[in-house]
Design a protein around this nucleic acid. Sequence first.
DNA 1: GCCAACGTTGGC
DNA 2: GCCAACGTTGGC
Length: 138
Amino acid sequence: LSPLNLPRWLLKSEPHVFSYADLVRKGREMWDGVRNHQAKANLAAMAVGDTAFFYHSQTDRAIVGICRVVKAAYLDPTDASGKFLALDIEPVQALTPISLAWLKQQPALAGMSLIKQSRLSVCPITADESHRIISLTN
DNA sequence: GCCAACGTTGGC
DNA sequence: GCCAACGTTGGC
């Protein structure tokens, strides 16, 4: 993973609904169902080739992999109102899980939107935050 | 299972 | 336009 494609986003999924293993098995997936305007704005800002941490919420509460945007945001076909967006992702690599508890213990990561806004399902990650998280996995 | 955070809805 | 009621998400 080159510094040029450090993950700058984080996507949350409930693992019992759709896990990183499911993404690997399918090879590609439409990321739909986002019904929050801030998360929508983040989806709209994601470009093809951007990478994102893949986070398991609820039972796992850990970053478990990295994925990549393969199709930029388009109207979410599952949204009857026509307001929200979806995009397509593919798996890049699985990671040894990095727990939310560990992330919360790092003073440098205290400002992460994952921590400050626990309900936001599509979070931005700063370059510094991403570098610190990735360096843990080496 | 509980609760905090937060978004949405609808009465006024 | 305010705010109470309610629904959802996600951590604990």
